[in-house]
Write a protein that binds this DNA or RNA. Sequence first.
RNA 1: GCGUCUUUAGCACAGCGGAUAGUGCAUCCGGCUACGAACCGGAAGGUCGAAGGUUCGAAUCCUUUAAGGCGCACCA
Length: 554
Amino acid sequence: MGGKLELEKQLAIIIEGAVRQLAEKEGCTLPDNYKTLLETPKEERFGELSCNAAMQLAKAFRSNPKVIAAKITELIEGKHPAVEKTEIAGAGFINFYLKKQWYYDELALMISRGEDYGSLISDKPKTINVEYVSSNPTGPCHIGNARGGAIGDVIANVYRKAGWEVTKEFYLNDAGNQIKKFGESIYARYKQLTDPDFPFPEDGYKGQDVAGIAERFAKENPEADKMPKEELTEKAIAFGLENNVGNIRRVLEKYGINYDVWFSESTLHESGAITKAIDFLRDKGAVYEKDGAVWFKATDYNCEKDEVLIRSNGIPTYFASDIAYHLNKLKERNFDLAVNVWGADHHGHVHRLRMSMAAAGIDPERLRIVLMQLVHLVRGNETLRMSKRRGDMVTLDELLEEVPVDAVRYIFNSTNPNSHLDFDMDLAVKNTLDNPVFYVQYAHARICSILRNVPPANTPADYTKLTDKTEIALLAAMADYSGVIKTAADEFDPSKITKYVYDLASCFHSFYNACRVKNEDASLMNARLMLITACKNIIKSALTILGVSAPEEM
RNA sequence: GCGUCUUUAGCACAGCGGAUAGUGCAUCCGGCUACGAACCGGAAGGUCGAAGGUUCGAAUCCUUUAAGGCGCACCA
């Protein structure tokens, strides 16, 4: 596996051993919440790794942290070959200073692993299903979907890098109430082609796109006006869905998203999976009937109210099909983990869905919902309110016409999903050139340029000549990669990757300005060529996770 | 009203129990006759929304509170 992540694990084991040994000798018990934690100090002078064990133990050991630290340090002396020295500082921190050789060994590993460096390896890969965007096929993808798409796609990529078997999935809501409304809306627009006074449904889809669909439908189906209303509506829905789903698929591809599975909700209705799911929950005693409807006893699971599964008119709710869908993921297909990326406007749905899994005997921890706060679209000073029904929104397609894909994906992944985001169209276009993504890409292109211009000498590289502080800083940043992958995966937070790759690029640029590659002593030059090659691979790997291109020239 | 997310430098954000609170943009000063200046080095800028508490130690955890976003349908 390599990287600082592995070094941390090894050191933590050694320290923990010393702590236990010490506890036994002194006749003390460790606090219940004790955990050996290593962290990277903010300041260079405190070394590369730091441990606060002594401070955590002060109370239990009835002793001064500095004294405990001294005892621990004594026990671990010389136990790890990468450690140059340890020092006790501050209130009782044990600081570790690494041998330069550790970095050189790590560089050798980076070179041998190539772009695969940083991947986490597990003997038995777990399976994960990441579902994202899943926009309603009643219309095009909008800006909110764009954020969800960027976040979901990167979470999936991060998990792949973290050693999981990943399925990217789009859940197609091609059944239910909103599809019915969609059909009625197309029908009305169709009728209006010949009768402008034909009434449009109150809560129909008023967007221009629906009118366009009706027009094209009329053109391609000249016989349609002879059909009965039901048949015509059904045909119109099929026509509209095919049109919209095709568009969604196309624009997402343009956005760099390619799904493994397009899962259709209507198959759940047709296969009887919904009825089966409800029966299953009924067997578990979580379902009852009232007022002619079928209910889920959500209040048994700490929800505010019970939820309807089948309306009194016999039509299942969206919640019912969602339960069937997630049973399909977690029971039928048996993914170890299912992750959904949802807009914060759905947060009320999170707990009850997870509890429906609990009711079905499935560990709700296997279903994780990543909530992203909504995107507010701003143009200069005015806030643009988005409504699909009214049809006044900026689509992903339009966005991509104004702003390059790389910039959009980078922007949407540069903040935590939990943060509210104002997306300023004017600024996004204007700032395209000083978007941080270009800073990172520039580092990559710069390295490629050096590699084109500087042929390696016919001498073995001597890594021990990499001693400049910018070289060590760069090596240190590169060695952090696997740890960043782990954190990004654990926290479902793609912004950890953007922040990291930006910092890495910054370390490279500093190195570039402080050190030369060309015309140096041959063994040093070759070492620096290796250094920047490894750096290039990591930048490329991280950008690939982000779905951003890594151009060799720009 | 209940739930939930957010509040850190002029702006956009990071830090989520540790040692002097960071990064970018904007501002100011300096650096290309050398591998790509879309770059680098430096300066300035903050009662971490407010008040209490927990502990060796709080931007970070717990209460209370203020402002804003989003939910609270036999909609999705």
